[in-house]
Design a protein around this nucleic acid. Structure first.
Lengths: 163, 163
DNA sequence: CCTCGGTAGTTGCACAGTCAACTACTAAAA
DNA sequence: TTTTAGTAGTTGACTGTGCAACTACCGAGG
């Protein structure tokens, strides 16, 4: 269609990747320095604390963290070792396991959350005004929705092939 | 300041992370399926082919890939093994090493590039119209510029501490 | 000339993640 | 009830990356 804007879109993709990499790197470094918490652990704590009773099934948790099953198993292993979370069996489904926030985990998150949020605001939010914010959210939401569709289509076609 | 928009900004950050993760995952899978090339290798090939004579110093390359020194050493090791790139000594600085695109590397990139770009267009570009594109680029550029400043400040303060 | 601070790249080690195979369990069908 | 397809989670083997230490080299000052 429009060569100029196609090229510009590709550049936007490059900017997107660079911004992501640098933001994550910076926020990770700051969080680690301020609280000793890796960003990946923070994400686990945040998810759990947002859930009722501070606990979540392993399978819900790894999906919302965009992590593999085994990746979560191992991350939780490490966090259990340090006492930030516990594993609890799931009454009613004996296959299931809950990852549960410990008091220590809750307290550490309470200390870390404002610092991390401030970091996000400083490095990310600060640069987006009200109007831009609406655009940003709309675009990202569309992108994510479209990828969801794609994944579903993959499943369908995988099923089709089986037929 | 404005609690509502602060919360919205935090949500935008979450969307940003999710969009990134899903996009990279999807594009990686598609590229691998279509060309057998991991996205990280594609990035190397693309950088090299954009550079004069299809070659770049290791140190320039790892910086533009946002990768660690050793990370690049190893990535190039693997790509050399498969014949996509070569290492050449740098005349005039015997410490230096060039990573150089081989004919095979060039050819594989030529086949892969349009496919990958189409993927980026399909999953990313499609969802951004002309106006949004300008906003997107402006915001991301500001974010990156600010992070750059931060890194420099860290260096300065590190130097200050030494004094 | 030599020395010495700094840079280029590689290597050993450790860590966090994935995939595939496995165990244990559930639920639905025979 | 027994079988069987499918789900939940863990484990083993492997991959890719980072950090810190190391070698080799550059270039400026004595």
């Amino acid at each position: 269609m429009n060569m100029t804007s196609d090229k510009t879109r590709l550049e936007a993709w490059a900017l997107f990747l660079e911004a992501h990499a640098r933001l994550v790197q910076t926020l990770e470094a700051e969080l680690e320095a301020e609280t000793g918490l890796p960003l990946t652990w923070y994400d686990v704590l945040a998810q759990l604390s947002a859930a009722p009773e501070g606990r979540l099934r392993m399978s819900d948790l790894y999906q919302s963290l965009l992590l593999s099953k085994s990746g979560l198993t191992r991350r939780i292993d490490r966090m259990v070792e340090v006492g930030l979370v516990e594993r609890k069996g799931c009454p009613g489904d004996r296959r299931g396991v809950f990852a549960v926030l410990t008091p220590k985990g809750r307290e550490i998150l309470r200390a870390a959350a404002p610092l991390h949020c401030a970091g996000v605001e400083r490095h990310f939010g600060e640069h987006i005004d009200e109007t831009e914010l609406a655009t940003f959210r709309r675009v990202l939401t569309k992108i994510i929705a479209d990828l969801g569709d794609g994944a579903e289509r993959q499943c369908e076609s995988a099923l089709d092939e089986g037929a």
